[in-house]
């Protein structure tokens, strides 16, 4: 088994898994029926991507592992999503800020992943980027609406952006598996996306009358499996059935 490739796929897929789980939890509780439907849609897209990635990872693992084993039966330390996607839905501003800060990255990332030498990964990227381009538009529009809406919404949006800002830098960190995959022409060199990312984010924030945070203190750890305290609870729900009823078909 190509351990680096396997690990690399998890690094991509776990982000979508945890963000999809977060967005899915909001179904039925959105601020309007239309946004509810849209958020569920984003969750659906992300889980669709997750399935393609994990199915591929299971194939690479070459043992009896299934997509569900990979998704639901790892200990917390083996999930390698970035800290950003596991942050809670404090309010709708946080939900949209988290989505936006991830979407801008996700779009840039998939644009590059389409050029991967690994044909499966480039095909998944090719399919996903259409969805993510919609996510990016949706979340950017909400950043503008809330940023440039009412005094209250502006304040809430700025708070959310300020608060989540510390998790953005981690998006551009490379693990050993990442580096190995970049060297083979399979992985994306995320360090090259950083400047464009912050430019694009700033562009939307400025158009939304929001301030670009200046803080240079960032948090990291997710990519090494060291998560925030929220993660355990996300996994408790995600893994509940597989843990409580092991080895069953559903």
């Amino acid at each position: 088994m190509n351990q680096n490739l396997y690990q690399y796929i998890l690094g991509i897929a776990d982000n979508s898994l945890i963000l999809g789980q977060r967005m899915g939890a909001l179904t039925g509780h959105g601020p309007s029926l239309e946004t509810d439907i849209a958020c569920t849609n984003i969750s659906l897209d992300l889980f669709g991507q997750v399935r393609s990635y994990y199915q591929y990872a299971a194939k690479i693992a070459g043992d009896k592992r299934t997509e569900d084993d990979i998704a639901m039966l790892r200990p917390e330390r083996e999930y390698v999503n970035v800290l950003l996607v596991e942050q809670p839905d404090t309010d709708f501003a946080y939900t949209m800020a988290r989505q936006f800060l991830f979407d801008i990255y996700h779009f840039l990332f998939l644009t590059e992943l389409q050029k991967s030498k690994d044909l499966t990964l480039s095909a998944i990227a090719n399919k996903s980027i259409k969805e993510v381009s919609y996510h990016q538009r949706f979340s950017s529009d909400w950043i503008k609406r809330l940023g440039d809406g009412t005094e209250e919404s502006h304040k809430r949006m700025q708070t959310a952006i300020d608060d989540l800002w510390r998790y953005t830098d981690e998006l551009f960190h490379q693990t050993e598996a990442d580096k190995a995959m970049v060297a083979e022409g399979i992985g994306v060199d995320v360090t090259t996306l950083k400047d464009t990312y912050y430019e694009k984010v700033a562009e939307v924030l400025e158009a939304s009358t929001l301030e670009v945070p200046e803080s240079k203190y960032f948090q990291k750890g997710g990519k090494q499996g060291v998560h925030t305290e929220h993660m355990g609870y996300i996994l408790a729900e995600l893994q509940y059935m597989q843990r409580a009823y092991p080895n069953m078909e559903w």
Binding site: P31, T35, F92, L146, D148, G149, T150, S153
Partner: peptide, 11 residues
């Protein structure tokens, strides 16, 4: 969700 809908309207 009221503040969200209000913001969307104001925007």
């Amino acid at each position: 969700g009221e503040w969200v809908r209000d913001a969307a309207m104001a925007y």
